[in-house]
């Protein structure tokens, strides 16, 4: 499955548009990690556990979007966008959305 955030792919032609597909996930770290992050807010620096969390959620969101695209018979998702938001204390939502298409080589 080809995932891209541009809409005109080099050497490829869009044969069929299948519409919007999306995947989202909401994740949180356990309280211990939140407390450690609280300490980090005094000293500054990178929050490794949250970076990891963000990375995992992004992969998960992209995976869900891919599954949805595969289910409707697409072989590529183009014009992909990410959107993140903090919905509750310690939890963050990540949404990936794009256009499912069928492409072929020129």
């Amino acid at each position: 499955m080809l995932i891209s955030n541009i809409e005109i792919l080099p050497n490829k032609r869009v044969v069929k548009h299948l519409g919007l597909v999306q995947g989202s996930t909401v994740r949180a770290k356990h309280a211990g990690k939140d407390i450690m992050a609280g300490f980090k807010n005094i000293f500054g620096g990178e929050l490794g556990s949250y970076t990891e969390l963000l990375q995992e959620s992004r992969d998960e969101a992209v995976q869900r979007m891919q599954d949805q695209a595969a289910a409707i018979g697409a072989n590529a998702v183009i014009n992909v966008r990410f959107s993140t938001s903090a919905i509750a204390a310690g939890a963050s939502e990540i949404l990936a959305y794009g256009t499912a298409v069928v492409i072929e080589d020129i």
């Binding site: 992050a37 980090k40 807010n41 005094i42 000293f43 500054g44 620096g45 990178e46 929050l47 949250y50 970076t51 969390l53 963000l54 990375q55 992004r58 990410f82």
Partner: peptide, 10 residues
């Protein structure tokens, strides 16, 4: 993609 979370200090 690349991502990072950076904390403020007091």
């Amino acid at each position: 993609a690349g991502s990072v979370v950076i904390s403020v200090d007091y």
